[in-house]
C-alpha cells in the first residue's frame, strides 16, 4: 500500500490528486494489461483459425469428441461467476463488506466447479487416448491433423484454466481486507481490477466454447 496523502484520505496514494484520478489510472492500467492478454491469447486463436482452415474435416471430427453438455454447463457456470463478481464490485461501491466477501466466495466456488469439470474432461480425454503424445489414437479422417486440434484444445483450455487458478489465488488475498472493510466506495480498485480480470477470463471462454466444442456439430458424419 502506497503512503497516504496527508489530511486523512484513506487509501489515496500521495501521487494522486483525487480518488477519481486514482481510479482512472487503475482502470486504465488494468485495461492495458487485458488488451495485451487478448493479443497473447490471439496467437493461439490465430493458430486455431489457420489449422481449421487447412484441415476442416479433421477439425470437425475431432471437435465432436468433446462433450457439448459439459461445455455448455461450464459456460453457464463461468457466466454465473461473472455475475457474482459484478455483484461483489457493486457491494464495494455500496460499502457492504460482508456481501463483498460472500460474492467473492461464491465466485471462487463457481470457479472451482468449472475447474473440476475441466479436470474430469481432461481425464476422460486421457482415457480415450486423445491427449497428444505417444498414446494418441484417433479413428477418423486425418488423425495427424486431429492431433493438432487436441494440441490446441489442451493448450488453449489449459492456458485459460491457468488464468482461472491465478484468479482464484488473487481472490483469496482480497477476502481478509474486504472483511475488514478496507474497500470503500471511494477506493476499491483491487476489487474492480480483479473483477475486470475475471470478466476477461470469462470472455476468453465465451470464444473458446463455440470454437472448440461446437465446430462441426451440424455435419452429418
Amino acid at each position: 500500500m502506497a503512503a497516504e496523502a496527508p489530511g486523512g484520505s484513506p487509501g489515496l496514494a500521495h501521487h494522486f490528486d483525487s480518488y477519481e484520478q486514482q481510479k482512472e489510472a487503475a482502470t486504465l492500467g488494468m485495461w492495458l494489461f487485458i488488451v495485451q492478454e487478448i493479443l497473447f491469447f490471439g496467437g493461439l486463436f490465430f493458430a486455431y483459425a489457420l489449422f481449421r482452415w487447412k484441415f476442416p474435416v479433421a477439425f470437425n471430427h475431432a471437435s465432436r469428441h468433446l462433450d457439448v453438455t459439459l461445455g455448455t454447463f461450464n459456460t453457464a457456470v463461468l457466466i454465473g461467476s461473472s455475475l457474482t463478481v459484478a455483484l461483489a464490485v457493486r457491494s464495494a461501491q455500496l460499502a457492504k463488506p460482508r456481501r463483498i466477501v460472500g460474492y467473492l466466495l461464491g465466485t471462487a466456488a463457481l470457479g472451482l466447479v468449472f475447474l473440476g469439470v475441466k479436470a474430469y474432461e481432461y481425464h476422460h480425454k486421457w482415457v480415450e487416448h486423445l491427449v497428444p503424445g505417444p498414446d494418441f489414437r484417433f479413428d477418423g479422417p486425418g488423425a495427424e491433423n486431429a492431433r493438432i486440434f487436441f494440441s490446441l484444445y489442451f493448450g488453449m483450455t489449459g492456458l485459460h484454466a491457468l488464468h482461472m487458478v491465478v484468479g482464484i489465488g488473487i481472490l483469496l488475498f482480497l477476502l481478509r481486507p474486504a472483511w475488514q472493510g478496507k474497500y470503500t466506495p471511494e477506493n476499491h480498485n483491487m476489487i474492480e481490477g480483479f473483477g475486470l480480470y475475471w470478466h476477461f477470463v470469462d470472455i476468453i471462454w465465451i470464444f473458446l466454447f463455440p470454437l472448440l466444442y461446437l465446430a462441426g456439430r451440424h455435419h452429418q458424419l
Partner: peptide
C-alpha cells in the same frame, strides 16, 4: 455456422464488457 457462432460470441463479449466491466 462458424459466422453465427462468432457473432453470438461477440454479442456476449460485448454485453460483458459494457455492463459487467
Amino acid at each position: 455456422s462458424t459466422a453465427v457462432a462468432l457473432a453470438i460470441a461477440i454479442a456476449k463479449a460485448s454485453l460483458v464488457v459494457w455492463f459487467f466491466m
